[in-house]
Design a protein around this nucleic acid. Structure first.
Lengths: 227, 227
DNA sequence: CGTATGTTTGACGCGAATCAATTTTCGTGG
DNA sequence: CCACGAAAATTGATTCGCGTCAAACATACG
């Protein structure tokens, strides 16, 4: 299905000096060429999760995989990038996933600039660009959840994520029904319900009678579950 | 985890008339206000997959779910959007997923302009914006695959997707190993291998001895499998 | 109240994972 | 070119997590 960042357009033309380039991602100006070609061999790492995201990449030959890992080694590949595809675009300072060569391959690395402009953009289009990248980060994290996590791990991650958005980080008011939780986590309502009562019996969470709010009694336990 | 398009920034300030707004997504200029508030009740549809993507939305109160459906009703929610989150950003003319209210809620609708500028942008930043949105679309489709499809359906979708990228749309040269396919589709190598030989026995595909290339003998059968 | 809707609980079955073994492919050096 | 060992892919037997089916229970609402 997905080989993201698909893009058949040839290497970008040099923008006229005063063209309205978005401040978010600007080509290197000092360099007469817009990017540097780099070569990799099979399974070689192009960048790792946590690396400084100084470059944006485009595949020239061969293929690349971008993936996320759980601490026990389970892996979810978010996308394959083939000829012409971009990868490594980030909202923040660092890469949120690892990129490795599928086989021998060549990529162009474009230097990024003005990254910090991203936080707190004021125009609608800047906000949208930021929202878009955040959404993509979240989508990648969610793919890891959907593809590689157990029911317990999914629920734990979900609760921790929701709690982050509450004023009191230990108390959740669920704004959605069980069926929505199930369809979000790739489970059934029965499994969602069973897993919640299981966590309740273990004393990790507590739920009042109407079951629409959840108290996180043992956040550390949830974090342990969230592989 | 994921409640995509997270954005705590207040409503965007009106950009100065000549600020370098990206041509991709531009606020309505004719209107003195930047958006229109709309109210929805529980399960009410905000927009549907296929609708014209004339607006971009932001949650003001309550919550929204964006989801994709398979023809038999299986559903995958890509994200929940709560206070301050944007949703409905699209690369093309139409929405790629459905948005519905989780409960009573209010959203601001920002009118979009200059959408067609998207195709064939020439500067690097325009290409990146396009790549970013394409990647998000693909990530959403992949979430549906990971969360709701069977092994056969996953493999079928994967083969059809790869075939699209080949010169001959009926012949695939796999650039990656089985383990990569497995980690992309949320399966094990054993299941990938078994499913491929199963499809081969059914006469849907054919593989030579070295098993690195695949001929699609019955594309229609694959499309039927790809729910 | 009574009906509809949402949630929980239980019994059972199936699809995919796990465990294990074999076969094939491929890289390396004789 | 062939022999060897390592890595990749396939195949089989078995297990198990989660889905399915079904029913009871709770909550919301007219």
């Amino acid at each position: 299905m997905q080989t993201a960042f698909r893009n058949d357009i040839p290497a970008p033309a040099l923008a006229p000096a005063l063209s309205p380039v978005s401040p978010l991602l600007r080509p290197e100006r000092e360099s007469p060429t817009l990017g540097t070609v780099r070569t990799f061999t099979k399974d070689e790492e192009i960048f790792m999760e946590g690396d400084n995201a100084a470059f944006v990449y485009k595949v020239v030959s061969g293929g690349v995989r971008t993936c996320k890992l759980l601490n026990d080694g389970r892996r979810q590949i978010a996308a394959f990038h083939l000829l012409g595809d971009f990868f490594g675009i980030e909202v923040g300072q660092e890469h949120r996933f690892t990129a490795e060569a599928l086989g021998d391959c060549k990529v162009i690395a474009y230097r990024r600039r003005g990254l910090d402009v991203l936080s707190g953009g004021e125009t609608l289009s800047e906000q949208l660009m930021t929202a878009l990248m955040r959404a993509l980060e979240r989508a990648q994290a969610h793919m890891l959840l959907l593809g590689r996590k157990s029911a317990q791990e999914k629920i734990a991650a979900f609760l921790l994520d929701l709690a982050e958005r509450e004023i009191d980080h230990r108390h959740i008011e669920l704004p959605m029904a069980r069926i929505d939780v199930a369809d979000y986590l790739g489970l059934t309502i029965e499994t969602v319900s069973r897993t919640l009562t299981q966590l309740e019996r273990q004393g990790v969470i507590a739920m009042p009678a109407h079951r629409r709010s959840i108290m996180l009694k043992d956040k550390a336990a949830l974090q342990r579950l969230d592989a």
